[in-house]
């Protein structure tokens, strides 16, 4: 067993790695894909933060964050398709 600090650090590093594609990506959809993955990873990070601070209210924050990220990605996808 390694400990919760190590997991938090590893997930944060994974988020930073996906930031590389946000800055580098040649097309707009590349950046959108990277942002989608980054928000998914960040939702998991928020759930882990709830355990770290021993507060259950952070789980609600993670749920609302996931819902808003989903709506944003769908809106951007419709915009890229030209349907918005």
């Amino acid at each position: 067993m390694i400990g919760i600090n190590v997991y938090l650090a590893l997930i944060a590093i994974a988020t930073l790695l996906s930031m590389y594609r946000v800055f580098r990506g040649p097309t707009t959809v590349d950046r959108l894909v990277a942002v989608d993955i980054m928000t998914t990873i960040t939702a998991g990070l928020m759930v882990l933060f709830a355990l770290y601070y021993e507060r259950m209210i952070f789980l609600d924050v993670a749920l609302v964050y996931a819902i808003l990220a989903f709506g944003g990605v769908i809106a951007f996808a419709r915009y890229m398709e030209g349907g918005l």
Partner: peptide, 12 residues
């Protein structure tokens, strides 16, 4: 969301 994004990528 993945499906919508990749469809947008193909259509654009």
């Amino acid at each position: 969301s993945a499906h919508a994004l990749i469809r947008a990528a193909y259509k654009s």
